[in-house]
Nucleic acid binder design. Structure first.
Lengths: 120, 120
DNA sequence: TGCAATAGTTTCAAAAAATGAACTATGGAG
DNA sequence: CTCCATAGTTCATTTTTTGAAACTATTGCA
């Protein structure tokens, strides 16, 4: 595997899927088997229905999820990962692994003490 | 590896690193060995210097990069990945792998023809 | 006909993010 | 004491994103 100069350009399209508020956490929920609109909305609370719709439509456009309407009482809709959607799983596994190794050390403070970087 | 219900919450901190415009592509550049401010700025063109500074400062706060000033003529600054920063690499490798498998099928069209999802 | 439940849409305002242009700082060479 | 190159900063403005609130649509049962 090479991540040479040409790589970033080629990976750009995946940024459209993963970048932006809610996208990663939404995909997590889909991997965890949460498929229905209301279900996702509850898990991602306090996401607004508009924003959730926007995100799901984007994933649909990109071929990551399918949208299936189940008529009935009450009617409901399920979002399923496509093959390429499921193919994202190794990315999420790598994130999980990273979190286990380094997540605890993530700094959040405003770092009031030191300012600029070190000088050589 | 398990990605159960509790996982999304625990992975949240990594979203602060990867989410948002420029972050993924910026980290790519750092992996590719581009370290200096101007270098990154050129690669990420047309990013504004302010935005680039903001991103680099965030990564510094999170402990992903260090900032080192090299006095001299002209002076320059290098941004280096920390251990936890380098630890992000498997995530990027997974993205690259995904792109090789599915990137070509990413749809971009407005999908004028069909509208809603299929009905069961 | 009215109601309950799901899954949205619409509208408009608010908040956040990104940008452009111009300016500051540093330090040695000439 | 001016110039060059690097690496920023500052401020005002624009653009994008997000959000809340209220409304629509569908279905079948009572």
């Amino acid at each position: 595997m090479m991540m040479d100069q040409s790589c970033p350009g080629k990976v750009e399209p995946i940024l459209e899927i993963l970048d932006g508020k809610w996208m990663l956490i939404l995909l997590f929920e889909l991997f965890n088997g949460n498929k229905r609109f209301g279900e996702l909305r509850r898990k991602l609370h306090p996401i607004s229905p508009k924003t959730l719709t926007d995100r799901l439509r984007l994933l649909e456009e990109k071929g990551i999820v399918t949208r299936t309407i189940y008529p009935g009482v009450p009617l409901h809709v399920e979002y399923d990962l496509t093959e390429s959607g499921r193919g994202l799983q190794p990315i999420f596994e790598a994130m999980w692994t990273w979190t286990q190794s380094y997540g605890a050390y993530l700094r959040n403070e405003t770092n009031e003490g030191e300012e600029a970087g070190k000088v050589m």
